[in-house]
Structures are given as C-alpha cells and as structure tokens.
C-alpha cells in the first residue's frame, strides 16, 4: 500500500518537474520571439527604404517622394558630441573617486546608491528639468539660453550619461589588481599621476566600453529631446538653434499619416539599431576577452 502511494507521488513529482521545464522553455521562446520579430521587421522594412538619398538629403515636404535624414544624422552626432563632452569626463571622474579615494566610506556608498537611483529616473523627467534649467524663457541672461536649442538637448543627454559612465568606470577600476597600484606608489610616483597613467590606463578598454554603452543608450533617447532640441526639418548645425535628431525624426514620422514618412521612419530605425547593436557587441567582445589589456 505504502509503496504504491509513494510511486504515485514520485510520478506526480516527475510530471511536475517536466511541466516546469516545459514552461521555462516556453517562457524563453516567448521572450525571444518579439526580439526576432522586431529585427525581422526592421531589416525587411528598413533595408528596402534605405538608399543613398537617406544619408545625403534632408526631408522633403509632405507629398513629395524621396528625401532623407541627413540633417537628423548630423544633428544626432552634434547632440551626442555635446552629451559626451559633459557626461564622459564627469562620469569618469566620479568613478575614479568611488574606486580610488572613497572606497568603503559612507560618502562613496551614498554616491553609488544615488547614481543607481538616478539611472532609474525616467528620461522624460530629465527633459523637463533641462527645459526648466536652460530652455525656459525666465532665465535668458545668456544669449544661448532661453529657447529651444541643440545645447539644451545635449545637456539633458549628457546628464543622463553621468551615472552610467560613473558606475562602469568604478567597476572597471576595481578590477585592476591592487599590486599594480602598489608598484606605482612604491616608485614614488605622485598619486594623481599613478591613478591616471597606471590605474585608469590599465582599465581603459573597460572604461571606453562603458562610455560606448552609455553613448548607445542616449543615442536612442527621444523623450528628453522633444522639448529641448525640438527637432528641425532643415539643415542646422548651430548649438543655439533647434536641431534635428534621428530618434526624434523617427517619432515624428512614425505618428504621421503618410506612407512615405513611415518608410523613412523604418530606415532611420534600422540605422539607429545597427549603431546600437554594434556598440553592444563590441562591449560584449571586449568584456568577454578580459577587461584589462594584457592582463595575464
């Protein structure tokens, strides 16, 4: 009797085990499916509308065929340059502080925590803050401020880069063996020199990768640009003027009712995603190869 009951239980347990395995596999497939679907659509619809004009021409008025997003590509480049000029140095500096000076202190722990929390603040909120700080007409004491401009969009994106760059820099610096820091100190090298020329340089492939990751993330950001950089359907390279950006242009075209514009939106999305996939793969490659150049 007892034996029979046990074997029935065992069977139930075995069936449950198989069922759960099946469910887990199903979940994985369900998660991968949209990824595959998104890429298939991007390639199918994007590649068919991608041509030389896309990279060399500016948008045509509604109803006319052709045109491209050259101004948006250049605009995105300018915005990202401004963002990197703000986000990369400050972020790396913060990371250096966390890893080299503040290790284990309460100050460093709270900065680290704040950086993680800041990373989760929605980009639209960053946009509102950047608007209030730079675009809002109340503070037009500088000629470049007080209206929509490329500068304000770049600042919003740059601020968003800081926590990401800071945290990855810290993590990469922590991977540099302590022995190497000691070697530099033991030679009587000044601390600032030892940090910059030895520790940071040793971790530089990892730090560059972290910057690329932050770069890729803000390259696709749209929300903070809507009311800072605003967008522009003509050529503009001035920091003081509203400027076009690739994700912004995709948004405007995607919600428009015109097929021709939808076509361009897909092409733009394909360009954007190729850029991002390249960055992520590079990151993956560098980190899997070992973060440190020449580390044994």
């Amino acid at each position: 009797m007892v034996k029979q009951k046990t074997s029935a239980q065992t069977r139930i347990r075995a069936v449950t085990d198989h069922a759960v395995t099946g469910l887990a596999i199903a979940a994985t497939v369900l998660v991968i499916a949209p990824l595959v679907a998104i890429f298939v659509y991007l390639i199918l619809r994007g590649a068919s509308s991608l041509n030389l004009d896309f990279f060399t021409k500016i948008p045509k008025p509604v109803g006319e065929k052709g045109g491209g997003m050259a101004n948006a590509i250049v605009g995105s480049g300018i915005l990202l340059a401004v963002a990197s000029a703000i986000g990369v140095p400050i972020g790396i500096g913060g990371g250096i502080f966390l890893a080299e000076f503040g290790r284990g202190t309460r100050l460093a722990n709270s900065i680290r925590f704040t950086a993680d929390v800041l990373n989760g603040v929605p980009s639209i909120v960053m946009g509102v803050a950047a608007y209030a700080l730079i675009v809002s007409p109340h503070i037009s004491f500088l000629p470049m401020l007080g209206h929509f401009s490329a500068l304000s969009g770049g600042v919003a994106l740059g601020i968003m880069m800081i926590p990401t760059v800071c945290r990855t820099t810290e993590e990469m610096l922590l991977m540099v063996p302590h022995a190497i820091r000691e070697a530099a100190l033991g030679l009587g090298v000044p601390n600032w020199r030892s940090v910059l020329s030895i520790t940071v340089k040793t971790a530089s492939p990892g730090i560059i990768t972290g910057c690329m990751l932050a770069f890729a993330r803000v390259a696709g950001e749209t929300a903070p640009l809507i009311f800072t950089a605003l967008g522009n359907s003509f050529w503009s390279t001035s920091l003081n003027e509203p400027i076009a950006a690739l994700p912004l242009q995709i948004y405007v075209y995607a919600i428009s009712p015109y097929d021709e514009w939808h076509r361009l939106a897909w092409a733009g999305a394909l360009v954007l995603i190729v850029l991002i996939v390249l960055a992520v793969s590079l990151v993956r490659y560098v980190t899997s190869r070992g973060v440190l150049k020449g580390a044994s």
Binding site: I180, E182, A183, L187, T202
Partner: peptide, 15 residues
C-alpha cells in the same frame, strides 16, 4: 623615490 621596493608577486605594469 629614495627607497625602492620589490613586491612578493611580480607586478609589472601590464599596459
């Protein structure tokens, strides 16, 4: 600078 040091494990600068 006046007192050199050699450590337990070799630690050349890898870069």
């Amino acid at each position: 600078r006046r007192v050199g040091m050699v450590f337990q494990r070799p630690n050349p600068f890898p870069t």
